[in-house]
C-alpha cells in the first residue's frame, strides 16, 4: 500500500478543517472552530488500481497570530492550497504559502481549491483571477465543504498527481 503525507495550507477560516472532515467523514458543521497546531487524518483512496493512503495534515491557518512552521511541511508529497472565495486576501495568503512550500519541499504536486462556492454571489475572487492561475499551470478547483461539491475530486486529483510524480 502507498502512503502519502499531504498538507492543507491556507489562511484562517478558509475551511481547511471542514474540507478534511467532509472528505474523511462526509460531514460538515457550520460552527467555525479554529485549529491550533496539527491534526492528522487518514483516508485510503483507490486510484486506478492502487490503494493510496493519504495522511492528511490539517495545519492551523496562517495569520498574524500563527505563522506556518516549515518543519510541519517536511516529508509532504504534495499539498492543497485553500482560499475562501469571499475573501480576496486569502488567495494572496495561499500564494504566499505556495512560495513557502515550494522553497521547503521543492516542486511537489499541489492543487488549489477556492472554497465556499455555495455562496458564489458573495465572491470577491473572479473567474479572470482563476484563469490567470490556471494559465500559470495551477490545478484550480472551486468547491464547497458545505455542499461537498468538488471535494472528492480535489483529493483524487492530488492523489493521481502524487502517483504520477512518484
Amino acid at each position: 500500500m502507498i502512503q502519502k503525507k499531504i498538507c492543507l495550507l491556507g489562511g484562517f477560516a478558509v475551511g481547511k478543517t471542514s474540507l478534511v472532515r467532509r472528505f474523511v467523514t462526509g460531514m460538515f458543521s457550520e460552527l467555525y472552530q479554529t485549529t491550533i497546531g496539527v491534526t492528522i487524518e487518514k483516508k485510503t483512496l483507490l486510484v486506478g488500481d492502487q490503494d493510496v493512503t493519504l495522511m492528511i495534515w490539517d495545519l492551523y491557518g496562517k495569520d498574524d497570530f500563527q505563522n506556518m512552521r516549515e518543519s510541519y511541511l517536511r516529508g509532504s508529497s504534495g499539498y492543497i492550497l485553500v482560499a475562501d472565495g469571499m475573501r480576496r486576501s486569502t488567495l494572496d495568503t495561499a500564494e504566499a504559502l505556495h512560495q513557502l512550500a515550494q522553497s521547503t519541499l521543492g516542486p511537489v504536486p499541489f492543487v488549489l481549491i477556492v472554497n465556499k462556492a455555495d455562496q458564489l454571489k458573495e465572491w470577491e475572487i473572479d473567474e479572470a483571477t482563476l484563469a490567470r492561475l490556471r494559465h500559470k499551470g495551477w490545478l484550480v478547483f472551486t468547491g464547497s465543504a458545505k455542499t461537498g461539491d468538488g471535494v472528492p475530486e480535489l483529493f483524487v486529483q492530488l492523489a493521481q498527481k502524487l502517483l504520477e510524480a512518484a
Binding site: 484562517f12 477560516a13 467555525y32 472552530q33 491557518g61 495569520d63 500563527q66
Partner: peptide
C-alpha cells in the same frame, strides 16, 4: 484556543 478563536472571530 478560546483566546485565538475570539481574536479570529473578531477579525472575521
Amino acid at each position: 484556543q478560546q483566546l485565538l478563536q475570539q481574536a479570529r472571530d473578531q477579525r472575521l
